[in-house]
């Protein structure tokens, strides 16, 4: 195992090393482990695999509900979806990995409260495509750096998205148009991610890219308002304060 100086979660690394099975609970969500490998992740900040799969319309919500009620208690919802022909194995794996890394990004985010581990707890989705804990940690670190490389403004992640009109000649991509159509000045990037059925990190990175291109407003800072500088005096100032100038002159003459 590669030892990293700044492990995001030393506890996760320890559980991976001892090949633990169970649920790692943090304020921002849960990581599910089987034999030390991460099999699933959930976070209130990230749309779940159910949202991602049903938002496009190919899998109707009742199809998802049916799989959940038939195979949920057996922890085999993923396998049921594939076996019943509702989703292909390839699509389930791709969607699942996307959701796993997306939720893990928030679970392993900074400013976490206490971390607890419940041994033996399993997720209803079941085993789809387990990922090494070290890989998830490394990817989380890479994603944080990527966001800041695009546009170092973390406030964008939690502020409402306010579009700005494109400059002449500036074009928007199809995915950006879909995102900005939902930007009503109230929805945050997370709310837009849920509405689109797109991973939250994908929305965060897209909003940072839009901000870098000047296509969304920079967030209003909550700190003190910037100082208002007085207008500079110009020579053609129509009404100079004669009384003030006299007082200055008198004071200068008195002190000389």
């Amino acid at each position: 195992m590669r030892i990293t100086a700044s492990a995001i979660s030393p506890m996760l690394m320890r559980l991976a090393a001892e090949q633990a099975t169970g649920a790692l609970l943090r304020d921002q969500g849960t990581l599910y482990l089987v034999d030390g490998r991460i099999v699933h992740a959930e976070s209130p900040a990230a749309p779940g695999i159910d949202v991602l799969l049903t938002a496009g319309g190919a899998l109707p919500p009742q199809g998802w509900q049916e799989a959940l009620s038939l195979a949920g208690t057996r922890h085999e919802v993923g396998r049921h979806l594939v076996d019943s022909g509702r989703v292909t194995a390839g699509e389930l794996e791709m969607c699942h990995i996307g959701a796993l890394f997306d939720a893990a990004f928030f679970v392993l985010g900074p400013a976490s409260g206490p971390t607890r581990f419940r041994y033996g707890v399993a997720h209803w989705l079941g085993r789809v495509r387990p990922v090494a804990a070290e890989t998830v940690e490394r990817e989380t670190r890479r994603r944080r750096a990527l966001l800041d490389r695009v546009w170092p403004c973390p406030e964008l992640d939690t502020s409402p998205v306010v579009p700005r009109p494109p400059a002449p000649g500036q074009t928007l991509t199809g995915r950006q148009v879909a995102l900005l159509r939902l930007a009503d000045g109230v929805r945050t990037p997370t709310a837009i991610a849920w509405a689109l059925g797109r991973p939250t990190f994908h929305t965060l990175i897209e909003v940072r890219r839009l901000a870098a291109a000047g296509l969304v407003e920079p967030p209003r800072t909550k700190g003190p308002a910037p100082p208002v500088f007085p207008a500079p005096l110009t020579e053609d100032n129509p009404e100079p304060d004669i009384a003030l100038l006299r007082r200055v002159r008198d004071a200068l003459e008195a002190s000389l």
Partner: peptide, 23 residues
């Protein structure tokens, strides 16, 4: 490899990477 182009994540990879590593 199978790659997600919004995030740059490799969803899976086999064989040798042409650059430094698969990621």
């Amino acid at each position: 490899a199978i790659v997600d182009w919004t995030s740059g994540l490799a969803l899976g990879s086999v064989g040798d990477p042409p650059g430094g590593d698969h990621e």
